[in-house]
Design a binder for these strands. Structure first.
Lengths: 204, 204
DNA sequence: GTACCGTAACTAACTAGTTATTGACAGCGT
DNA sequence: ACGCTGTCAATAACTAGTTAGTTACGGTAC
């Protein structure tokens, strides 16, 4: 059997994931990645080209893992929101990585667009079938739902620190999760949006 | 009168704001800041100590500007959301700066906590008066509203690229704004949340 | 069996260029 | 004489990427 490099490759990707999630693209150190992976720095360039390409590779893998772990459900956006939130809680590094990418590598890869397309289409179908509020562009629905799910992680620690009462972190998280799911339900359910009785100005 | 350095100080802050918003703390270059400010690099250290303290100073000023520009209104969360969204659209660098801070300097300053406290209290008051859905912790209400407002900016460019139809960027933005405000209204209005008829599981 | 060879996996040490930070010093108003 | 504003040039530490190898190992001719 010829020598096998797959394990070294995986170790490098794992280490890069940690390093990039912690420090971002500019802040990450190639030497630290190699050290953490217990591999030689040269191999990073042999297998992944350079630091940026390594980042892209890590990013793609992270999105694949996410897609496998949290199936999209346009018919049950609250359920989807809950599952996505749980995944984010379990993998906060993934959330950080996504934010780093948004700031440091805001390129639009065709693969990512195609990954979103069926989800947007599913939302559009649900709207057409009357299962979902049809007023908003399906893309906006997606953006807002994901924004709600991510709100906990994108919010200021200073704001989170103001939580009233004395609850454990798990209780706190569970309570936020419930509020989040309620918000998604109210937003998505077309029973609450069909009438225009909501007493707020909707523009300007 | 001794020579006045206030103008140089302001130029340095402005330049630092741009540089930090573009590249973050680790990616920012002190030389570029000095060059953009048309000031000597040494003055950064004379006036602001070092790179990190300069970042903190820029951050504080940015939050003050935001607080002055967008007054909080617990009674009219949809209106507040719209105003906050408009400010973010007008100042996307501020949004980026906030994200950088979250990733690179997630320290909780007492000043920031105190800035949030009256807002949270105002939400709690509105809940007590029955003007707002009292089910959720006021902190969660704040987190979710801000998360909704920021959703446009934190969403993946790949997802935004999928917008249906052919509209100009301003039309696109206005439509998202409307959907956002509708979402905040549905979430905040206690008329829609009092009954538990929403047909979704709310936990696990 | 074994000496040889090609190739894939891996390594140590280096280079060339940046980077934040500082030391030494000059002008100027009081 | 002194404090504030500002300049210039150094420096010590780092960093991405590279050069020039060595080691491990299966196949192959003999």
């Amino acid at each position: 059997m010829p020598p096998d490099s797959t394990d070294t490759r995986r170790r490098l990707l794992d280490a890069a994931f940690e390093e990039f999630a912690s420090h971002g693209l500019a802040g990450a150190r190639v030497d630290r990645i190699a050290e953490l992976a217990k591999a030689n720095k040269r191999l990073i360039y042999a297998y992944y080209g350079n630091k940026e390409e390594l980042f892209d590779t890590v990013m793609v893998r992270s999105l694949v893992v996410l897609a496998d772990a949290v199936p999209f459900a346009a018919d049950d956006l609250p359920g989807y929101a809950g599952a996505l939130f749980d995944h984010m809680v379990a993998h906060p590094e993934m959330v950080r990585l996504t934010m780093w990418k948004l700031l440091e590598r805001p390129n639009v890869s065709a693969a990512e667009v195609e990954a979103y397309r069926p989800k947007v289409q599913a939302v559009a179908d649900s709207q057409a079938d009357g299962r979902l509020d049809p007023d908003a562009d399906p893309v906006d629905v997606m953006i807002l739902v994901i924004g709600l799910v991510a709100a906990w992680f994108t919010s200021s620690p200073a704001l989170r620190a103001l939580a009233t009462g004395e609850r454990s972190d798990v209780q706190r998280l569970a309570e936020h999760r419930a509020a989040l799911i309620r918000a998604v339900a109210q937003m998505a359910d077309n029973r609450t949006s069909g009438d225009d009785s909501v007493g707020h100005r909707l523009s300007t």
